[in-house]
Design a protein around this nucleic acid. Structure first.
Lengths: 211, 211, 211, 211
DNA sequence: GATGAATGAGCCTTCATTCAT
DNA sequence: GATGAATGAAGGCTCATTCAT
């Protein structure tokens, strides 16, 4: 059992990472100062260094767990054989969107392109691996769903598909709305968007296969 | 007529904004220092302040002209009655993409959603106006093209359409490829992407109108 | 009699001062952190403050006992009337060297000339007194040994003699060799060095006295 | 010809290095802060960075020129064939002493043992090379002067000789007296000290050679 | 007695910006 | 018009030290 002191300590640690997440999200990694984080977390800036090695460590701790969770979840969805390929793609797509919007802060810094900055490489390594893995899962789902064999075509339609996902996430990345309200309000739009893509891509592939 | 000195002066001014544009593009606004800009422009860092109020002013001056040009161009395309509505939408869409990729640097900072950061608001005002105007032109083209009367539907399909455009631009925003090579390599993908959207949206609207 | 707890307490106190001594010796006073000392002593860094007022106090506690011991030992050697004056000077000289090399760490900070730094003055007071006393003992041995009556001459040959002692100690002050190995390896050199001084000074004094 | 501005600039640069020299001398490299240096130099601490890369650079700039000068001077003295070997050794010895006392500040940090700290290695490299070169010149003079062929003996008497030089320098390293007054007051002592060594060493070598 | 939690002071360094020439 | 000189504000980070448990 945890002592009262340990509890308070854990709380402080959480407050710090929470504040970091919020500030990174709203201002970007570089613009945020350790002192700002401390202020929002209600502690001295030196306290941060008790729990986290340095500023970059905050980013790392912030990003890894959710990314791993998403990866795992997407993998398990892809193995649900009771779902049709289309349903699987649709599900992991919506899950991906939900995740990215839930973790808007991290998304901006890590999933967002430009992810691998030279000076962050070290701690970003694990994160980059994760990111690649996630995109591979999406690509795999796409190939199965549309039964695309031609690699060039797969690449093209993957791109087109990803444009949409990226666009969705990016559009709402800086929204201040809660994830619940956001999903509730826009889920129909997102689904409609996937519909549009499914129909459009299917039609195009039909045409391609005919020729 | 301009004296020789005035010519030289104008040249310096141009060198500065050119350097700023290149550096902002390749390293991001925050990471660039005034001294770097000055070095690339071949002048002292203090000279910059003769022509531009401050660092932010550089960004502003950098962003407005292209945005205005884009706006004008889009307006003129929309008035070409020899084109079908679909061709007009397709043309301004590709133009928008081309523009955003050409001005990746500015896009990131201004068209990019996060645009209105508190500390930039002042100089961003003019830019924000421009941005809204541009999106309205796109929306107008969409309404005409798909003959959507229901406002709610228009909003939804506009969003879906924009997701794609945003996604495209965002994906290549940080690419180091030249605009020429980028467009040459990916134009088919972009066009295919618009195809997919046109087909998908059209199909969906048909279904909607039937019910 | 001491309780078991008191014993443990005394042990901790000793571990701390021992660790401090070692670390000050190998890294210098400023470079050592309280946390390092605590780690090496096997306790929390806050525990140090239970036994010692502050970092400087550690230095003080570290320096006084050995200095007092040296002082006492030198005094007792000077009183051994079974030794010739020259043997007495030689013995306390070697003893002084041995001591300084044994306590290289403290030497650097305290015997070393620079001793009286403004910010250390307070705690250095006792130490400074000790230092002066030690040098007076050496000077006394010199006067007796060379039978120098002229104060000016005494001062000059004392200086010359001290130059040598200082030089010896200073040269090996930062050596990582153990005191045993150091003395074993260099004792002949040290003795030869004293020989050289004895001969040189004696000869010079003869000449002086003749004139 | 230098403009008034350039003159002032040079002056500032000199004030900075002068202040750094004094402060490093009296407090040691680590204990001195850039702000202290700036304050003593009468400028802002940021100004220092205009003229010197960083704190370490100050140390480097402070140490190299004098060391090179000393090295050159010692070499030229050794080549004066109109002087006897003894006179040459005596001259470079006094020169060495004069130099070390003149540059007391640098001596402490660089000639002083412990010179090569890991984190300073890079900039200290040139300095270390210089130091070694200087000591080799002294050794060479010793060998010639006392005609010592046996390497072991040379090593021993070199050590003894160096003890004295080190001792002299170290004793007055922290004196606040001017170099002029210092040399004037103590030159006889230094010369007497060298006399003592010459006589002592010569006598000892005679004895050794007899056996 | 002993410790983990927390902090204020301070350090080196960078940068946008102003001033005097 | 143009520039080198100079600076204040700020940032990441470390450390000796105190406090509550």
């Amino acid at each position: 059992m945890l002592t009262k002191q340990e509890l308070r300590s854990q709380e402080t640690k959480k407050e710090i990472i929470k504040a970091a997440g919020q500030l990174f999200a709203s201002q970007g990694f570089d613009s945020v100062t350790m002192r700002e984080i401390a202020k929002m977390a209600g502690c001295s800036h030196t306290t941060i260094y008790i729990y986290y090695k340095d500023k970059e460590d905050l980013l790392h701790q912030l990003a890894m767990p959710p990314l791993q969770a998403l990866n795992t979840q997407m993998e398990s969805i892809l193995q649900q054989i009771d779902l049709s390929p289309e349903e699987r793609l649709r599900t992991i797509s919506l899950e991906f969107i939900r995740f990215c919007l839930l973790h808007r802060n991290i998304y901006t810094t890590f999933i967002g392109v430009k992810a691998s900055r030279v000076d962050l490489e070290e701690s970003a390594n694990g994160i980059n691996t994760m990111r690649i893995s996630i995109f591979n899962l999406l690509k795999k789902a796409l190939r199965t769903c549309f039964a695309i064999e031609n690699d060039e075509h797969l690449l093209m339609y993957s791109r087109i598909y990803f444009f949409n996902l990226h666009g969705i996430v990016n559009t709402y990345t800086h929204s201040e709305e809660s994830i619940v309200s956001l999903m509730e309000r826009l889920l129909p739009t997102f689904e409609e968007s996937l519909d549009v893509l499914f129909i459009g891509i299917s039609e195009k592939i039909k045409g391609v296969n005919k020729n």
